[in-house]
């Protein structure tokens, strides 16, 4: 029933239900280096599949986790972030999320809060991490603590897509966490929370008042 959300004709998202398939999404502002990180991790495997109609790029990867082979689909935005929000199908059935900001641009750090909020609306439980990219531009940033990750209880990585610092480590750990999540899914919780939409409380109150008024007006006739 929830599957219409994931409706991208070229992509059957039901495949992510199969045991050996995981979906990992990337979030973050324009030009923080999301694609560059993918490229650095995948190297020769780097064969992006552009779905320009959906402003989406897919990267396929095969990983060995424990003694199993897992097919990993990385979902990257291709400019969709400029709408300040992603289409629900982007989050649908995702098993992990990599959130990236650029250590040279404060606004990309501040915007993490918005990305995280949106992520949790769709996927309240999936593993997520915060990635501080472009540390090669100024290594001094690695002596600063960025509190957002700590506040949200998320793992934090200082990385550089240019010189490769911690890129592979970060991806491997996130693939492991995605596979773990899949083996012990809290999908049920996810679904329940999806049903509990954030109602605009004020509107709700207004509505209930309006109903009361109607009842009063009608009551003489009923009597």
């Amino acid at each position: 029933m929830a599957d219409h959300i994931g409706c991208i004709p070229e992509l059957d998202q039901k495949k992510y239900d199969a045991r050996e398939q995981v979906k990992i999404i990337c979030l973050g502002d324009s030009a923080v280096g999301k694609s560059k990180l993918m490229e650095r991790f995948l190297m020769d495997e780097f064969r992006p599949q552009q779905l320009s109609t959906y402003a989406l790029t897919l990267y396929k990867h095969t990983a060995n986790v424990g003694n199993k082979t897992v097919a990993v689909d990385f979902w990257d935005t291709a400019g969709q972030e400029r709408f300040q929000s992603m289409h629900p199908s982007y989050y649908h059935k995702a098993h992990a999320c990599i959130m990236v900001f650029d250590v040279q641009r404060k606004i990309t750090y501040k915007n993490l809060a918005n990305w995280y909020k949106e992520l949790r609306e769709y996927r309240p439980e999936i593993p997520c991490c915060v990635v501080a990219n472009k540390i090669d531009a100024d290594l001094k940033v690695t002596q600063r603590s960025f509190s957002f990750a700590k506040k949200q209880g998320l793992p934090f990585y200082f990385v550089s897509a240019a010189d490769g610092t911690n890129v592979v480590k970060m991806f491997r750990e996130m693939i492991n966490r995605a596979v773990d999540y899949k083996q012990n899914p809290s999908d049920f919780m996810d679904e329940v929370l999806e049903e509990l939409e954030n109602f605009d409380l004020e509107k709700k109150e207004e509505n209930s008042e309006a109903e009361e008024d109607e009842l009063k007006a009608e009551s003489p006739e009923l009597a």
Binding site: Q143, R144, S145, S147
Partner: peptide
């Protein structure tokens, strides 16, 4: 490539 950064010297951003 893995690099550990010394967290003890971290200053507030």
């Amino acid at each position: 490539l893995e690099v550990e950064f010394d967290k003890s010297k971290e200053e507030k951003c």
